[in-house]
Design a protein around this nucleic acid. Sequence first.
DNA 1: CGGGCTTTGTCAACATTGATGACCAGGGTA
DNA 2: TACCCTGGTCATCAATGTTGACAAAGCCCG
Lengths: 194, 194
Amino acid sequence: MTTRLRAVRPRQPAAVTRKAIHDAAHELFRNEGFDAVGIRAVAARAGVDAALVIRHFGSKEQLFLEAMTVDLPAIKVMEGPLEGMGRAIVEHVVCLPSSRPGALAVTALAALFRASDRGEVQRTLRETIENVFAEPLVRRLEGGDAELRAHLIAAQLGGLLTSMHVVQDPVLLAADRSAIVVRYGDAIQRLIDT
Amino acid sequence: MTTRLRAVRPRQPAAVTRKAIHDAAHELFRNEGFDAVGIRAVAARAGVDAALVIRHFGSKEQLFLEAMTVDLPAIKVMEGPLEGMGRAIVEHVVCLPSSRPGALAVTALAALFRASDRGEVQRTLRETIENVFAEPLVRRLEGGDAELRAHLIAAQLGGLLTSMHVVQDPVLLAADRSAIVVRYGDAIQRLIDT
DNA sequence: CGGGCTTTGTCAACATTGATGACCAGGGTA
DNA sequence: TACCCTGGTCATCAATGTTGACAAAGCCCG
């Protein structure tokens, strides 16, 4: 009897395969959400067996977290002057139609929000918001209740982000971006001052 | 040969069984989230066969929507005077430790947010926010950009709600509620005025 | 060269999930 | 009694995430 026929795939260093899976997952999860994308779909796109996905990342949830926690670069506007910072931050979050790093970070954060009833996802979301929004602000704010105000600003930013990318409020999506910057920026400024 | 033995359950009118499933689902989904709760768990709690759940509600997602779209009473504060409305709204959303109707509505809305990568859930979430937050405000606001401002306030409220009940920001949860009311209320007021 | 060891990949299963369809029983009505 | 609508049960389906046994390629050391 002949030996079993196997569809072998040329061996590659672990880092290469891992990156292929990571990239495929990033693309799929960001566009279609956590549970619309199966492990087998990620594996197919990466040209890999489904079991390898688990082997390399432990679980689907872990893969999701690693794929969505890309960059998330610090918002450099938060290091500028306090006057007008409200509008500057909103402009940073709401504009940039496709300027690579920022836009990806925003949609990735939105994907975290949408999948946040997974316990581990919720934890990552909390830490990300703390690191990217709240903590940089705490160091800048003056006056009383600085920590509370920073976290309330983070809540405002999260609200704007989810309204546009999770809820997809049609009024906000159709509105003039500069009007949003002015209005919402001034509301944020209210918490920056005093 | 004897006939097949069946664990029959006393027949009940459809409305009764349906309500039992609805209540069980409401309790479980609100506490543990959409995909931590299986259809069989809901059925067990309702004392019912799993197939009946689908029979009565069509799908798990539909059951989730019907179970989470309870009451959601209009926020009566939005019909009061414009001065001080910002703080009044925040107080309405953030306080009430367990005053029945309101607290349930808030956590149910949070459950919708957490499950919002299901397409139908997202649609319901959008409509709920429009009906409960944005639309009542549009009718009250004066001055230019009333519609935009109303939806931005809705974004602020969604942000506060998700920060406390989805992200569960420890700073906000530990903070003095009245300080949140004052600070965040004034930031909302900024969008109510002018 | 050759035998072991680790690394990389494949496949066949597993348990659980949401969902479906066939069937059955009770009860009212004609 | 015969009928049929309604409410309920069970077996089963396809798909999911995950696991473990196994195969083959590369590498090290003799």
